[in-house]
Design a protein around this nucleic acid. Structure first.
Length: 434
RNA sequence: GUGAGUGUAGCUCAGUUGGUUAGAGCACGAGGUUGUGGUCCUCGGGGUCGGGGGUUCGAGUCCCCUCACUCACCCCA
């Protein structure tokens, strides 16, 4: 019987683990320098927690089980309900705004596809308890701070920004009653995700007349600076539309001031499929060949409350390790040092078996100082040991031989240049970096 | 969950209308005589051809089922 990894899951061999760590370490580094604190929750939650948010239909999309006490449990498919639960439990005690991040392992019972597996890691950032353009901008900034950190420029990606409240106000002013908005949002969000004919067909379905269709098509086309001006003219005179537009402009302006404006672009085609977004929404896309969404988020006003949490507005975003890695592989941007976790700074070699004791002592002394030190487990020729040092990617090799026996000196060889010099053992252990 | 495509060594792939013990390159391991690695040379391990069943004298090759992956839907909390 030959076993294989469960459908939609991945084995992380050392070279895969190295890349995963490289990505998740960047997530943590960026989160912390932007002032966010890390949290986590259990991988199992009550199934009802997800039913409460998404209805009974969600059950078929997640992994669930019944424990021996007949409790219905689910492996978490997302982090937001856990976040809401945790914030609610201490709502009165947490200083606001709450700036938390997490990088949970999530599972969803979906059919695996490229960029979409059944098990993955998701980076979540949330700012809860303050509804202000600054927090919207800050949230988008953190995402861009990460993308810039891993070497992506505005030529590689774009962050499309929109505001659902603005769209809702424009729709209401043109006779689209609020109950119809959810369906219209879902259609508009597909503007760039469907072929033009299919999109036109979808628009047709939510419209009652040719006039409505014209209106929706023209609204959905707005993008970039010109698009913003067109929207501004459309919003003129409507108080709600004007204030939402001012908020959107403010967010974009803040992003420019924070020097990530080059990445950002207004786009009415970004609405987000999820029902709970109420204000600012944004989605990152790769440019060129890799045009899929690479991150997304937005402001949610009632989400926490609907999950039994406090009535607090929040803004957040998420992205997964799967899509990030695929984007970077596609662009060839994963640096070679990110592909290995080996950190052999010094490889110790005995020139004769009787020097092996000295090798052990020196390795232990170096390791205690925090230096990555290795040696061969087999007593073999100097050439073989050098070969092993080379394969281990060692930066320097230390040969313990005649010089050590006679004078207490080590031969230190720099593997890149091939140059070597004799150094007293004590001096080398004091300062192994040379 | 629906539809289509793919599946030969760890990886990338050969494999003649079905015909003897299934191959290559890379990777991996061992050597190239004992104080100098990456290159090079030699040798080697590794595949029940995704799995199961069927047709046939004979199946990696044809048929059926199944599993996994890829793509398009559904969904994307």
């Amino acid at each position: 019987m030959k076993f294989q990894a469960v459908k939609g899951t991945r084995d992380f061999y050392p070279e895969d683990m190295a890349i995963r760590n490289w990505i998740t370490e960047a997530w943590r580094r960026v989160s912390l320098r932007n002032g966010f604190e890390e949290y986590d929750g259990p991988i199992l939650e009550l199934l009802d927690l997800y039913r409460a948010k998404s209805g009974e239909g969600i059950v078929s999309e997640l992994f669930h089980l019944t424990d021996r006490g007949d409790r219905e449990l689910a492996i978490r498919p997302e982090m937001t309900p856990t976040l809401a639960r945790m914030i609610n439990a201490r709502a009165g005690a947490l200083p606001r705004p709450i700036k938390w991040f997490s990088m949970p392992r999530l599972c969803r019972a979906e059919r695996p596809q490229r960029g979409r597996l059944r098990e993955f890691f998701q980076w979540n950032i949330d700012i809860v308890g303050l509804d202000d353009a600054v927090t919207d901008a800050e949230c988008i900034f953190v995402a861009l701070d990460f993308f810039r950190e891993i070497g992506l420029t505005p030529a590689d990606m774009v962050m499309k920004v929109n505001c659902r409240a603005l769209l809702a106000a424009l729709l209401s002013a043109r006779g689209f009653a609020p109950p119809r908005h959810a369906a219209i949002f879902a259609v508009l969000d597909k503007r760039d995700k469907l072929p033009p004919e299919a999109f036109a067909e979808a628009v047709e379905k939510v419209c009652a007349s040719a006039g409505e269709r014209e209106t929706l098509i023209s609204i959905s086309q707005a993008r970039g600076t010109e698009g913003l001006e067109i929207v501004a003219r459309a919003a003129a005179g409507d108080a709600r539309a004007e204030s939402s537009l001012a908020r959107l402009r403010s967010v974009l302006d803040l992003l420019h001031r924070m020097e990530v404006g080059e990445y950002c672009s207004f786009d009415m085609g970004v609405v987000r499929g999820l029902a709970y977004y109420t204000g600012t929404v944004f989605e990152g896309f790769g440019r060129g060949g890799f045009s899929r969404a690479i991150c997304g988020g937005g402001r949610y006003d009632q989400l926490l409350e609907s999950l039994g949490g406090p009535p607090m507005s929040g803004v957040g975003f998420g992205t997964s390790d799967v899509v990030i890695q695929e984007l970077l592989e596609e662009l060839g941007r994963i640096p070679s040092q990110a592909r290995t976790t080996r950190r052999t700074e010094v490889f110790l070699i005995d020139a004769a078996p009787e020097m092996f004791d000295a090798v052990l002592v020196l390795a232990a002394r170096l390791r205690r100082r925090g230096v990555g030190a290795e040696f061969s487990y087999r007593r073999q020729s100097l050439g073989k040991q050098l070969k092993q040092a080379s394969a281990a990617g060692a930066l320097r090799v230390v040969i313990v031989g005649e010089e050590y026996k006679a004078r207490g000196h080590l031969v230190v060889k720099d593997m890149a240049s091939g140059r070597q010099q004799e150094i007293p053992a004590d001096a080398f252990c004091e300062n192994p970096c040379m």
